[in-house]
């Protein structure tokens, strides 16, 4: 695996998700997500995607999300970090950019780990359903913010 690409993938993930590098590294999902993305959209498309973000300013991201090639990839990476799922690429994207060597264009849970590390739970100040519970009676306490 190309370490430089993974690092870039991680840095970009941080900007896309709104979570720090530290928080993302703690989930230990970076390499799995990088590999999943590469398997689903192909090495060349991923390299092209990463190369597009030379320096990731807010304006860059806004433009990229609206781009018909970059946008669906970026959204899929965000979704993977937030809920642990890879979602099938849109039909138009698949028709334009896929090749026979790709994995099938499918929707799946990346792994148990990916599910449990989903950022949406952290964003909502809670824990993933079925894991990392707060302990007996924790649900009776006011949420963190209003303590």
């Amino acid at each position: 695996m190309n370490d430089k690409s993974v690092q870039k993938f991680l840095q970009l993930s941080s900007v896309l998700t709104g979570f720090s590098l530290f928080e993302l590294r703690a989930s230990d999902c970076t390499e799995e997500f990088y590999e999943t993305t590469q398997r689903q959209i192909g090495r060349e498309n991923l390299e092209a995607f990463l190369a597009n973000f030379a320096d990731t300013t807010q304006a860059d991201i806004d433009v990229s999300l609206a781009n018909s090639f970059l946008g669906p990839i970026a959204k899929n990476i965000i979704r993977m970090w937030y809920v642990g799922n890879w979602v099938a690429m849109p039909d138009e994207w698949w028709a334009a950019h896929s090749s026979e060597i790709f994995a099938a264009n499918s929707t799946f849970v990346v792994s148990s780990q990916a599910y449990k590390e989903g950022l949406v739970w952290k964003a909502a100040d809670t824990h993933p359903m079925g894991s990392k519970s707060g302990g007996f009676g924790s649900w009776a306490l006011p949420p963190a913010e209003t303590k």
Binding site: L16, T17, G18, I78, R79, L119, V120
Partner: peptide
Amino acid sequence: AEVDEFLGQGLHGQKLREALKNNIS
């Protein structure tokens, strides 16, 4: 559903995180 909805609105980064927090909680 909320992640999909906010992604569909073009939200990302800190704004996405805050929108989800604000809605889900």
